[in-house]
Design a binder for these strands. Sequence first.
DNA 1: TCCCATCTTGACGGATTCCCTACGCCGCCA
DNA 2: TGGCGGCGTAGGGAATCCGTCAAGATGGGA
Lengths: 221, 221
Amino acid sequence: MTRVLVVDDEPQLLRALRINLRAREYEVEVAADGTTALRRAGSWHPDLVVLDLGLPDLEGIEVIHGLRGWTQVPIIVLSGRAGSGDKVEALEAGADDYVTKPFDIEELVARIRAVTRRISSPDSVTPVQVGGHTIDLAAKTVSGGVHLTPTEWRLLDVLLRNPGKLVAQQQLLTTVWGPAYRSETHYLRQYMAQLRRKLELDPSHPRHLLTEPGMGYRYQP
Amino acid sequence: MTRVLVVDDEPQLLRALRINLRAREYEVEVAADGTTALRRAGSWHPDLVVLDLGLPDLEGIEVIHGLRGWTQVPIIVLSGRAGSGDKVEALEAGADDYVTKPFDIEELVARIRAVTRRISSPDSVTPVQVGGHTIDLAAKTVSGGVHLTPTEWRLLDVLLRNPGKLVAQQQLLTTVWGPAYRSETHYLRQYMAQLRRKLELDPSHPRHLLTEPGMGYRYQP
DNA sequence: TCCCATCTTGACGGATTCCCTACGCCGCCA
DNA sequence: TGGCGGCGTAGGGAATCCGTCAAGATGGGA
């Protein structure tokens, strides 16, 4: 089930969105200010964030930056201002879509559907087994009380979305750390070791997170 | 169906391209910034990338380098600047075509068709049979628990991409080891023997990895 | 302010891969 | 028959790559 975090300081709008989204089989959490929103996103790992730019404590742009610091979760921005300057600023900060108030709630739901369809379509990611653990990439959960850090999730994400395929070191480094880290292979060694310690039954003889010397790594289902 | 990843930070242009390309039976994914683009390319494996150079987070050139680090997927570059310097830089970084804004959408579609017709994506190469083994060049896998080293893969790659064709010794040496090794034919003997040992049913009587004395080698499907 | 989780950075032993030399075989030709 | 060039095979040293431990740096929350 798709998890949506709605961030807005108007209780009426929150209620309306919660009812409409739950009726359409979405899981909904709400936050009334930016600080709460960032904290809840960090602990709950939503699949989508609906964010009002006019918040009491933080600039909406700050919330976008805060989220983009560690996640690529889709963000749909709500705003009372229709100026193209705000729009550009929000989209440049990393928002995925922009809706101007007042809006028809059906329109927002349609945009949410469009964004979530785009996210889930690349390959329907169902929970995956590694070692004795069940990993849910969408919910960002691992069974057995295992906790992964943001970087570990990004790395595992790339590997698990290419099951059986060799993923080159350069690809892992550029997608997880950025293009500037193209040759910093010691990060890979470090974090692959951590993933194995946390996920493999016998970390010194991995069966799923495999090394291909001189090339990269491979997730073997 | 051909898969196209469109990277641009202008929502209007994204929408227009998505509609026009989908109407022409392309599968379309979009990304609004370079980081997202790199991640999505890594998980979705598009057959073609349409890339705007003016992105909010990364230099477009960086995105090209990031992609070229692991894939030969065709890249069509969009840019607002018509200067030939940018053009040269993008093409040298590995872009396949260059379109200056503003452009007619029909023109872009025509170029997309041209590029996809010209280049069959290496990521969509179907597995190949050699001896009793199935070889997947994209995933870097061989059936039957056979393991190949990086140099062996590079050599096999060249041969398998030229099925039935004679590949000259010089060409193999320059593409696998570099131009400086143009006359070191003993490397070829060494690694061809290893490939045969690992892949051919009867290594001393190869049926697929054939020698053309004095000329080079040939992969016989 | 301190503490804790996370991300960096450095160093070292062991494993893999590569490079290089040497040798035997075969067909060709003088 | 003996020499020669091209090819296949074998093995060991060197270079590279990888896993691991440890410690410093960073930043956010209590």
